[in-house]
């Protein structure tokens, strides 16, 4: 059978019972439903509010750049993008660093209580992070962390740790023990093995958990809403929400602001999509 699979041309390896037009038709329908609202928002940003009111479902006529220019020059867009970036980067670095250290121990050390520790971390997956938001706010207030980047970064690291460890552990454990022995013979200790061999080998998994943490942080709303009262520290999601409730009559402006706010996440994901699906394979394997 192996020979058969090798000899037959790749396009015959799967039986194609559907005619291709149907496949494409369905795929196009899925794509349309997914992106039509997004396209509407982006295109709507090129219209004026009177145009939108007169004909809610129309196309720009003429196309105006004013809304986008206005958001980029007169609003807090750049400041908020900067805040979002700092918080997302800080969260990502923290999650990957703490997650790798913990997952490394859980994957490659044999010691009493290891499974207890792993279960302890996985409990966080059962745990609705949102439920603890009120006491978390009170605790951050008592620690005088409210209205600082740390008030968002530290809890986000904690929220992301369980999933990070669940994804990283199997990757780190799957590296053959022979490599570790070989590294030991070459005189590197366990930590040298982690740094020089294990980390480079598990880069796909590291990228995956990094991306998941970054996107989760970039999109986060509830925690920043409660702990970042200071408008100078507002992140993009808070900015979008405030803009839309502050300038309710400026529909075109809201559309432009919303488009600009979603652009970074879209670009980021476009580059990283393969990594995410690949990195999740280890985690969902039955």
């Amino acid at each position: 059978m192996t020979a058969n699979a090798v000899l037959s041309p790749p396009d015959k390896r799967r039986p194609v019972q559907w005619s291709n037009p149907i496949t494409y038709g369905l795929a196009l329908a899925v794509a349309a439903v997914s992106i039509a609202p997004v396209v509407y928002v982006i295109v709507g940003g090129f219209r004026t509010t009177p145009q939108i009111v007169a004909n809610p479902a129309g196309l720009p006529d003429p196309w105006v750049w004013d809304n986008y220019a206005r958001v980029l020059t007169q609003s807090n867009f750049w400041k908020q993008a900067f805040n979002s970036g700092v918080i997302a980067l800080g969260t990502t670095l923290g999650v990957v660093l703490l997650g790798v250290c913990a997952a490394f121990v859980l994957a490659r050390y044999t010691f009493r209580g290891r499974e207890v520790l792993y279960t302890f971390f996985t409990l966080g997956l059962l745990f609705p992070a949102g439920a603890a938001i009120l006491p978390l706010y009170l605790m951050l207030r008592d620690l005088s962390l409210i209205n600082s980047y740390y008030a968002v970064i530290l809890p986000q690291i904690a929220f992301s740790l369980p999933l990070t460890i669940v994804i990283l552990r199997p990757f780190l454990a799957a590296v053959p023990r022979e490599l570790e022995d070989a590294a030991a013979i070459d005189g590197s200790g366990r930590l040298g093995f982690l740094w020089r061999i294990l980390l480079p080998l598990s880069r796909p998994a590291l990228v995956t958990v990094g991306i998941l943490a970054f996107v989760a942080s970039w999109n986060a709303f509830l925690l920043p809403l409660l702990v970042l009262g200071d408008a100078n520290l507002h992140t993009l999601p808070l900015g979008v929400q405030n803009f839309s409730s502050q300038y309710t009559s400026d529909t075109a402006g809201i559309l432009a602001f919303t488009s600009l706010a979603m652009l970074p996440a879209l670009l980021f994901f476009t580059f990283a999509e393969k990594q995410i699906v690949g990195g999740l394979q280890g985690a969902v394997k039955g």
Binding site: V215, N219, P237
Partner: peptide
Amino acid sequence: VPYVLAEVT
């Protein structure tokens, strides 16, 4: 695409 967008957006 919809999954990547922020909930607020």
